[in-house]
Design a protein around this nucleic acid. Sequence first.
DNA 1: GATTTTAAGTTGCAACCTAAAACTTAAAAA
DNA 2: TTTTTAAGTTTTAGGTTGCAACTTAAAATC
Lengths: 174, 174
Amino acid sequence: MDIMKKLREPLHELAENCGLPLALETMGERWSFMILRASFNGLYHFEEFLDELGIARNILSNRLTRLVEGGILKRAPCADDRRKIEYRLTEKGLDLLPAMIALRQWGERWETGVPSNPVLADERDHKPIAQIAIHAHDGRELTHNDLCWIDENDLRASQSNSRDDANVKKLAGI
Amino acid sequence: MDIMKKLREPLHELAENCGLPLALETMGERWSFMILRASFNGLYHFEEFLDELGIARNILSNRLTRLVEGGILKRAPCADDRRKIEYRLTEKGLDLLPAMIALRQWGERWETGVPSNPVLADERDHKPIAQIAIHAHDGRELTHNDLCWIDENDLRASQSNSRDDANVKKLAGI
DNA sequence: GATTTTAAGTTGCAACCTAAAACTTAAAAA
DNA sequence: TTTTTAAGTTTTAGGTTGCAACTTAAAATC
């Protein structure tokens, strides 16, 4: 049945201790983020995605299947109409919101001519949300200059004393 | 010369006022984020990317060209060795770091068996950075339940008084 | 100075994936 | 009972990816 198999070499085979290749396994596909965005905007059904995205039927079918297999969406037969199937975000899917907003904000900031309307806001006071940023454990905002890589083992060991050098590597290329 | 043309329909034609499709135009390509990550890790040269990523030569060549065209990397001939070319992150490229870390953290959290080592930390105190999250303008952390869409026009108009309903749309599907 | 090696690409080709349109199946509406 | 709707498959053409071999220019080595 499933004629569209995934024979591409998985990205994550190559990079051991990093979540990024794993994340890209499903979300790095063309259309994945657009489908996710449509889900966040309240679309549930196959034909709705079809109309909204202008994607081909077979590709949509394939991508939805992959998102379901990846645990990002869940399929649920519709109670009142047994032809219909609802695609809904799982907790795992909902948890992609910060990444998606970060990408969206980046696109707004750097790609020309995007007035960005409507705007994502806090429901409490209706003010636009802050830019997604990197924060230290105590809330200070950090830039790429403030970051370094440290080895998991040194983390546990050093809690406050110990020599300061250990396996600290400055984030290069910046 | 450039035999690999981009004939795919651009994603952003379909979705007017949103930065996401624009962002995905370049970063939605397979390998784009992996190349970006390699750049953040201090790789500059073609052959370095080749060894690190296990990508095909021609694909790497094509992706680097697109990233340069997209203003995310810049090409710079190497001063001391005129065979070499350095690919370096632009400001626009550096600004993708929050989105990339958000994706990486998501991958770590949800994809099984990723011990995630080394860990990204604050250089000042060597403590791991916080999870990337959505924040209100005043710093409160927000979840998808706290969000809504508001129309740009109402934003300007309503500053504190005016009727509260206007064009506020709850983020659905959640 | 001639030959080899390195760096960064191109080119050719087979396998793979995508897109558009037509077809299928089951359930609901008319 | 026939038509319409929802959600897929199948077919087929054409675009994309990946591997290996080739190219070009500059540096290193003999």
